[in-house]
């Protein structure tokens, strides 16, 4: 009787969800078999059984590949959701989590710590990155938060300005550093999942799950925003406050991810775009599929980053930038053809 009431749209949504979940699970499992060490499928199976006599290969999978695959999935889904939220509340399909200065703030924090304390690794570095991001977020809200009219434009302008500001300070600090430090910062900024460990996975998991949950709860308000600030107000949405709340959520996700993985661009921009072709973002299915597609995508990007070069890592940001550029060029191409 439920089936009879389901429209074509409902069926499409359920199908899309089913495919996304399956693809995600498949990817999470399969990705574990890729890496520098030669491992077999048996090793992958064994890594799920927590035994004390685990073999070398099994432990490589469990200790190293599993955390990074999970982190990659979390990062991809988090960035995709953050991008979707931002694009929705700013009504700008080109909005990206990195547009607002969060990543620049993180780099600034990292370089500052290096310059002041000579610390170039470890927990302190990630903490400095997180604080830098939160500083950027705080400044953004301070500058553009109280605007009643044209809040979107203010936010975008302020975000870009902050981005440049932090970049300028970072460059200034790097000016006095030695080439080795400069190279290391560059690679840190380009992003990597190699530093993933079980002990620290709880943070991104917590933040992303919570933020996604809140976002799902507010999906009606998000959809209302799409028709314009005025329209949303008539539907009872407190537009200015809501926008700030969503900005905070997406900035939190971005801040945590940058602190742990460095800067990984384009995902927040691309994935919502792609999913929108197939599913209206107005539905729960649309939001969940965006999250799943983002995660799956990033899992494979991570596989590429550790498989493209022999016994070496390619920074994740390089791969997402390359894919992102191709994506946008082809968007442009298809638009021309449509017109």
């Amino acid at each position: 009787m439920v089936m009879n009431n389901m429209s074509a749209v409902d069926i499409r949504h359920s199908l899309a969800l089913l495919i996304s979940v399956s693809a995600a699970l498949f990817s999470l499992f399969t990705a574990l078999s890729f890496g520098a060490a030669e491992t077999s499928l048996q090793d992958v199976f064994n890594s799920f059984l927590l035994s004390n006599e685990a073999s070398f290969n099994t432990r490589i999978i469990y200790e190293l590949r599993m955390p990074r695959t999970l982190l990659a999935f979390l990062a991809g889904s988090g960035l995709a959701i953050a991008g979707l939220i931002l694009q929705t509340v700013t009504r700008n399909p080109l909005a990206d989590p990195y547009l607002f200065g969060i990543s620049s703030g993180a780099s600034f924090g990292v370089v500052l710590l290096m310059a002041l304390a000579g610390i170039s690794a470890g927990f302190m570095l990630s903490a400095a990155a997180l604080l830098g991001s939160l500083l950027a977020m705080g400044l953004l809200i301070l500058i553009a938060g109280r605007q009643q009219s044209a809040q979107v434009e203010s936010m975008l302008l302020a975000g870009v300005a902050l981005s440049f500001l932090f970049s300028a300070f970072t460059s200034l600090l790097l000016y006095w550093s030695d080439p080795q430090a400069v190279a290391a910062i560059l690679f840190w900024t380009l992003g990597s999942f190699a530093r993933a460990q079980w002990a620290t996975l709880w943070l991104p998991l917590l933040v992303i799950t919570l933020c996604t949950f809140v976002m799902l709860s507010f999906r009606r308000q998000l959809n209302a925003m799409l028709l314009g600030d005025e329209s949303a107000i008539t539907l009872g949405v407190r537009v200015q406050r809501f926008r700030i709340l969503m900005l905070v959520l997406s900035s939190l996700i971005t801040a945590v991810l940058v602190a742990m993985c460095g800067g990984i661009g384009f995902v927040g921009l691309m994935v919502p775009h792609i999913v929108r072709f197939f599913i209206s973002q107005g539905s729960i299915a649309g939001l969940l599929v965006t999250s799943l597609v983002g995660g799956t995508f990033m899992v494979w990007v991570d596989v590429l980053s550790r498989s493209l070069l022999k016994n070496q890592e390619l920074p994740v940001g390089v791969i997402t930038a390359a894919i992102g550029s191709v994506f946008f060029l082809s968007l442009l191409f298809f638009r021309k053809r449509k017109v």
Binding site: L226, L227, V237, R276, Q281
Partner: peptide, 27 residues
């Protein structure tokens, strides 16, 4: 208590007609 029909609605993001009408439930 009060609903509003405005002149201009910004475009993009391809919401379906059903989705737009469903927004009336928001409050």
């Amino acid at each position: 208590k009060v609903a509003v029909v405005l002149q201009e609605t910004p475009s993009q993001f391809n919401l379906s007609v059903f989705d737009v009408v469903a927004l009336g439930l928001t409050p």
